[in-house]
Simulated scan of single mutants.
Amino acid sequence: MEVDPNEVAELESKIINHEAYGKPYKWSPRDFELGTSLGRGMFGHVHVAREKKTGYLVAIKALFKSQIVKSKCEHQVMREIEIQSHLKHPNILRLFTWFHDEKRIYLVLEYAAGEELYKHLASAPMGRFPESRAARYIYQIADAVDYCHQRHVMHRDIKPENILVALNGDLKLADFGWSVHAPSERRKTMCGTLDYLPPEMIKKEMYNISVDHWCIGVLLYEFLVGKPPFESEDQEKTFARILSLDVIYPSYVPSGAKDLLSKLLKKNDRLSLDGVKSHYWVQQFQNV
């Protein structure tokens, strides 16, 4: 089906502005045709969907209210919606709007046709990305997270499973379930994913936005090596390696990347995200 660009623009305006013909528009499941399942989440399913009037493709995440209430995550889900709906960056997955019925909450999201980044990493030769691809990707994620930080948002769960790939190959940071709006930039909640936890979280100390800088370092290592730097057979050994900064660099990791990683995987004074984007190793691949 060929889509009229004017109709797509009208739909985008209607979604983003929550308006239709000058008055509020109330969306419902009847506006969409559900397609292929894109996966399951903690509280429901994600499907590709087509808006009936224009044929515009989106992803719809349907969350069961009963499961949210049972898990006592009402505040967390509403916080995720509030934060993501206000983020507009080319490397962040858009949340266009949301609506609900008696049983479910529906999130209308940008459709990233390239699927999850972790699948691309798993299928890459030797399970890792070439340095040019890793450098381009880390620039995009650093730019997206920098945008979040400028708006006092910590993501707190950056990892390949929470990053999608658009049709044009660009990355889209997604899943803001652990994100928080923190104007004071100080938090103490331990959250995220084991292999990506920074030392200050493990020690249950007060932390700030630099926890995301640490995660970007772990992410870059995983891009280049195919596994997180502190991965061990059990949680206690993983914690011990994180706390002692026990990073082993295989011989194939380029020296420029090691320099960048050493400035992110540290306990204090981590490199700024502007510093990540302007790092000489990252910059040499931006126009390749």
Rank of each mutant, 00 (worst) to 15 (best):
R40I: 02
D4C: 08
N17R: 07
K23I: 13
I105M: 12
L57C: 10
L264P: 15
A166D: 14
I81K: 06
A135E: 05
L273F: 13
F239L: 10
S184Y: 04
I15L: 15
C215F: 03
R133Y: 06
E33W: 00
E7K: 14
E33C: 02
H279G: 06
L220W: 07
F32N: 00
N168Q: 06
S123Q: 14
E12S: 01
A135P: 02
Y249H: 10
V8C: 04
N268E: 14
Y21R: 12
P183V: 07
K14P: 00
I248K: 14
R136Y: 03
I248A: 13
D212T: 12
I60N: 00
R241I: 10
Y118A: 03
K227F: 08
V145Y: 06
V218H: 04
Y252A: 05
A59Y: 10
D170I: 00
F64I: 11
E74C: 05
R79H: 05
I105D: 08
Y137G: 05
K23A: 13
K263M: 10
Y252L: 02
Y111F: 15
Y139G: 05
R128F: 12
P160I: 03
G44H: 07
I202S: 01
G127Q: 07
E51R: 01
V211S: 03
N91W: 10
Y221P: 08
L34G: 01
F230W: 05
M78I: 03
A62W: 00
D31S: 01
K103S: 12
P183G: 09
R30N: 08
E12D: 12
G41N: 11
Y252T: 07
L271E: 13
K277T: 04
T97D: 12
R270K: 13
Y147M: 07
K263H: 12
Y196Q: 03
K23G: 01
H155S: 06
H18Y: 05
K258N: 06
H120N: 09
V153L: 04
P198G: 03
M78F: 11
A144R: 11
F43Q: 09
R94P: 00
L107K: 04
I105R: 06
R50W: 08
V253L: 05
H100Y: 02
K26F: 11
V145R: 06
V153S: 07
G22V: 03
V211K: 03
G177W: 02
K237F: 04
I81M: 11
H149V: 08
H45I: 09
Q76E: 10
L93R: 11
D175G: 07
V211M: 04
A240D: 14
K26G: 01
P228E: 10
F129L: 14
I16R: 11
D175E: 09
K26T: 12
A135I: 03
Y196K: 06
M1K: 11
